[in-house]
Write a protein that binds this DNA or RNA. Structure first.
Lengths: 143, 143
DNA sequence: ATAATTGCAAATTCTTTGCACGACA
DNA sequence: TGTCGTGCAAAGAATTTGCAATTAT
């Protein structure tokens, strides 16, 4: 599926008349090879070891492109760090966020989504996207 | 109920050995008299007209105290602005956020909360709080 | 060739902090 | 009187932007 994402991004780049660059390739590989919920700093530090001269700004700009192309999504857990997660087509999930260790667990729940639709409908509201996060303690941190 | 909140805050101040000040009174009044979802800047600007010499820092510090005392809660809608909302005891609600005009509509849904508890339980996760936001277009912005 | 991209540093934006002065208990 | 709070400006933290040099089409 990484191949598919690479294609999506390549097409996006082409459609927009943008350019394929060494940096974008490197950042894309690092992103695809990584954790599903990555802060910009995480990715930057990870890259830095093998590619010491990639700039912070380039990472920021490239991740924004990933989000625009649809292969990534920006998420915020309220700790002041923007994170990016991988987007799988047709899939949606929400998060359990551990306030102890910062672990992030994904879940999906069809029933909750249905109820959200109902709530929206009852307010005559057209949902574009949603965010559901349950904050608390993961099994380990509960001790 | 504003009276109740004032008492809660006064008690909090007393318990901590802090002091009642003119600024805290003014900011509390402005907060209680305002919209349920207020950014710090909104509140600061609102205050500025009647009390031009209240500092930004004081507003920040005071809102943090409100949150600690339990009469307010910090919320973030991902636009880089921290907002504070009023807390009613025993009440919990979630938000519909209009991406067109920024309107915020509150809702409560018992069934969704129950399902959240179930999800958490199935992951052996102890929920402390949660955040559910549905982003999209409000009736007006749908046209 | 031409236009986009990069890396750096400087600029922004939001929030926090240090400190001397003033106010509350 | 002693401690806490305030206002200001400076410091931080995260992110964005301007620009000259570089690179992809």
């Amino acid at each position: 599926m990484n191949k598919a994402k690479k294609k999506i991004f390549a097409d996006f780049i082409a459609d927009r008349g943008l350019k394929t660059t060494r940096q974008r390739d490197i950042i894309l590989d690092a992103f695809l090879a990584s954790d599903r919920h990555l802060s910009i700093e995480d990715l930057y530090l990870k890259l830095r070891t093998s590619h010491p001269n990639i700039g912070y700004a380039t990472v920021y700009r490239t991740l924004k492109l990933f989000a625009e192309s649809g292969i990534a999504r920006e998420i915020q857990f309220g700790d002041g760090q923007t994170r990016y997660e991988h987007v799988e087509q047709g899939e949606h999930h929400d998060h359990l966020v551990c306030t102890g260790c910062g672990a992030i667990i994904e879940f999906e729940n069809e029933a909750i989504e249905k109820l959200q639709d109902k709530v929206a409908a009852s307010h005559d509201f057209l949902i574009q996207y949603h965010k559901l996060e349950l904050y608390g303690l993961c099994p380990k941190c509960r001790k």
